Simulated scan of single mutants.
Amino acid sequence: MRKVTLSEILDHPIAQKYLKRSGMAHAVSVAYHAYRLSLQEGVDSDRAAKAALLHDIGHYEWYTDGEWDYEEYKKNDIHAIKGAERAHKLLIRLGEDRAAAKEIALAILLHTDSYLPDGQLTKNSLQMVVKRADELDEEPGGAHHYRTISLEKARQKIQELDRLIEKGERPLKRTV
């Protein structure tokens, strides 16, 4: 049984602050990708969608002389570390099962390897689903973070995804 819904996460002020910063449309789209992939891979769809929705809440803003500096961001990024911490704290505050919160946070931590030293790291199925879902929505130069969606539209999409998770159904159309 789900202790916390995606809608409850989205409605929390902390989630809204950081989802707006990192790209609400991207977060919602990645959550849908993760849901679809989780059904294909036999992964817990609730945890996959939660990790995907929150995967970028650790983003920092990297500017040089008032302009977004994508190269500086790529060189110094550790958003997955900060995001895992924020997501874990948020989920625990909302009443999520502690083991689920940890698993979701670890999937966020490992959704990218941009901050890791060179080498291979073995990821579990949930972590791979979140990583692949993010990659499916990426655009060159980080443009996926700048697509827009109203909070009301995002809420509608997330409520729809909550219903799909509850019923274990596949989405019928493109999301965002």
Rank of each mutant, 00 (worst) to 15 (best):
M1N: 03
K3F: 00
V4A: 03
L6H: 01
L6A: 07
I9W: 01
I9E: 01
P13E: 13
I14M: 12
A15Y: 00
K17Y: 02
Y18R: 03
Y18I: 03
L19A: 02
K20W: 00
K20M: 03
K20T: 04
R21A: 15
R21N: 09
G23K: 03
A25R: 15
H26A: 09
V28W: 05
V28T: 04
S29F: 01
S29A: 12
V30H: 06
Y32R: 08
H33Q: 13
H33C: 12
A34Q: 04
R36W: 05
L37W: 05
L37Y: 10
S38E: 04
L39H: 09
L39V: 06
L39G: 08
Q40N: 12
E41R: 15
E41G: 09
G42R: 13
G42I: 12
D44I: 07
A48T: 08
K50D: 00
K50W: 04
A51G: 14
A51C: 09
A52H: 11
L54E: 03
G58R: 00
E61V: 15
Y63T: 15
T64M: 05
T64L: 10
D65T: 09
D65V: 11
D65P: 00
G66H: 07
E72P: 03
K74R: 15
K74D: 02
K75W: 05
N76T: 00
N76R: 14
D77Q: 08
I78M: 06
I78W: 07
A80M: 11
I81C: 01
K82F: 09
K82D: 08
G83Q: 01
G83P: 02
R86N: 01
L90Y: 08
L91T: 04
R93P: 00
L94A: 07
G95C: 02
R98A: 11
A99G: 04
A99R: 13
A100D: 07
A101M: 05
K102E: 07
E103T: 13
L106H: 05
L106D: 05
L110V: 00
H111Q: 15
T112C: 08
T112K: 11
D113L: 08
Y115T: 01
P117N: 08
Q120D: 10
L121S: 11
L121D: 03
L121M: 13
S125H: 10
S125P: 06
S125A: 15
S125L: 13
L126N: 06
Q127E: 15
A133H: 03
E135L: 15
D137F: 02
D137C: 12
D137A: 15
E139N: 05
E139I: 07
E139F: 09
E139D: 12
P140C: 10
G141N: 10
G142M: 08
G142K: 06
G142Y: 07
G142N: 07
H145S: 06
T148N: 10
T148C: 05
T148V: 12
S150G: 14
K153V: 07
Q159F: 01
E160I: 08
L161R: 03
D162R: 11
R163N: 11
E166T: 13
G168S: 04
L172D: 06
K173T: 14
K173Q: 12
K173V: 12
V176T: 09
